Amino acid sequence: MTEYRQIVRKWVKPEDLNQHGALFGGRLLQWVDEEAAILAVAQLGTTSLVTRYISEINFSARADRGDLLELDFRVQAFGRTSLTLTCRVENAVTGQEILTLDRIVFVAVDDNGQAVPHGRTEATAGTERLRQR
Rank of each mutant, 00 (worst) to 15 (best):
R80L: 08
S60F: 10
G79S: 08
A22D: 15
N18A: 08
P117Y: 12
I38E: 03
V32R: 01
V116P: 07
E35P: 01
G66Q: 15
G119R: 10
L101Y: 03
R62Y: 15
L17T: 00
S55I: 06
L101V: 09
N91E: 05
D72T: 04
L85Y: 05
T94W: 06
R5M: 07
T86V: 13
Q43S: 03
Q43A: 04
T84P: 00
D111G: 13
V116S: 05
V93T: 14
T100S: 08
T121G: 07
V107G: 00
Q6D: 12
T127G: 12
V12C: 02
L85H: 00
L130G: 09
A77R: 12
L44V: 06
D67N: 09
R133M: 08
V32S: 00
L71Q: 00
R133A: 04
R129Y: 10
I7M: 14
L23Q: 00
S55M: 10
T94N: 10
D111E: 14
T94V: 11
M1I: 02
L68A: 04
V75R: 00
R27V: 09
T124N: 07
V93S: 14
Q30K: 15
A108M: 03
G25Y: 03
G45S: 09
R103I: 08
F78P: 00
A36W: 03
T47H: 12
V41C: 06
